[in-house]
Amino acid sequence: MSDVTQHSLPSAAAPDPVALRAAALNSALRGASPAEIIATAVRELGRDRVALVSSFGSESAALLKVMADVDPAIPVVFLDTGWLFAETLAYRDTLIDQLGLTDVRSIKPLPADLDRDDPAQDLWFSDPDKCCFIRKVEPLRRALAPFDGWINGRKRFQGGARAEIPVVEADGVRLKFNPFADVSREDIAAIYTLGKLPPHPLLESGFLSVGCMPCTSRASSEGDTRSGRWQGRSKTECGIHTMKTS
């Protein structure tokens, strides 16, 4: 009889329950309206366990309006990086008042991180990825700690890494809802018109996508709303959508 020791093959990795749930929801919500997707997020997770993350930028009012019509008490996370335009901060306050938002949380970078990594406040120029990490990615991770899911405003028509986003996806231990994935520019314009929403103050000056002041320029193409972000660099995303939040 052979003395060869039998070694069992390694077992397959267990399915990721968050990924499975995301795939099921993504399939169920195919063709659903943005309001239906947000309502599903609240029903699946509970109002206190899902947050909407908003930059209060050039197209943000549309998603905030849809959310407010579902439930204005859904928590809203706003990343106050310290480099935002004064116009964006004023726009935030205007929309909070007009839409009746009751739980907007302004999250700032940790002072210790700024003192250590950006004492001269020029990190945006020398290492924009690291600047985005300490001013946006790390603060968002802290802000989302109490939540099981989050809602954002990315759209497929923005192109690049956003061109193929699903309606629901897994983001580490959380579900990530993209209710505007399939909307068009015309859909957004209609929400603004019907909701009588004010435009971002910088829009008429050619800023079609508004982020932090040092890294935002006027768009070079009306067809590419994000062409004014990080102009002259290969960078196209701040990191909150390309790095897991958990």
Rank of each mutant, 00 (worst) to 15 (best):
P198I: 07
R185F: 13
L194D: 14
M213Y: 14
E186T: 12
I188V: 13
V210F: 01
L208H: 02
F207I: 06
P179V: 02
T193Y: 13
P179T: 02
C212Y: 05
G195T: 02
D182W: 09
K196L: 15
S209K: 00
H200C: 10
T193Q: 15
T193F: 15
L208I: 02
H200Q: 10
P198A: 10
F180G: 08
L202Y: 07
R185H: 11
S209N: 06
S209W: 03
L202R: 05
C212H: 10
P198T: 04
F207Y: 10
A189D: 10
I188D: 03
M213Q: 14
P201C: 02
P201H: 07
G195A: 11
G211N: 02
V210C: 04
N178R: 05
L197D: 03
P214Q: 04
L203R: 12
A190N: 10
L203H: 10
G206Y: 06
H200W: 07
M213A: 11
G195S: 06
D187S: 04
D187H: 07
D187Q: 00
K196F: 14
P214K: 02
E204D: 15
T193V: 12
Y192R: 04
S205I: 11
L197H: 04
P201I: 07
G211L: 02
I191V: 08
P201R: 08
L194C: 15
K196W: 14
P198E: 08
S209C: 09
S184I: 02
L203P: 04
T193K: 15
C212P: 08
L203N: 09
D187L: 03
G206M: 00
L197K: 01
H200D: 07
L194K: 15
P179A: 03
A190P: 10
Y192A: 11
L208M: 01
A181H: 00
F180M: 08
P201L: 05
K196M: 13
I191E: 08
T193G: 13
V183I: 11
S184V: 08
Y192F: 04
L194F: 15
P179R: 05
Y192L: 07
V183N: 06
L197M: 06
E204S: 14
F207N: 00
A190D: 11
L197N: 05
V183C: 14
P179K: 07
A189F: 13
C212D: 11
A190M: 15
M213G: 14
L202P: 01
F180C: 11
I188M: 09
R185T: 12
L208Y: 07
S209P: 04
G211W: 03
V210D: 05
V183H: 11
G206E: 02
L202I: 09
E186K: 15
N178C: 07
E186S: 14
P214N: 05
G211R: 01
E204H: 13
V183M: 12
G211E: 00
L202Q: 00
V210K: 01
V210E: 12
R185Y: 12
A189R: 09
S205P: 13
I188F: 09
V183P: 08
L203G: 11
P199W: 02
V210R: 01
C212L: 09
S205D: 14
Y192M: 03
L202C: 02
V183W: 09
F180R: 07
M213I: 15
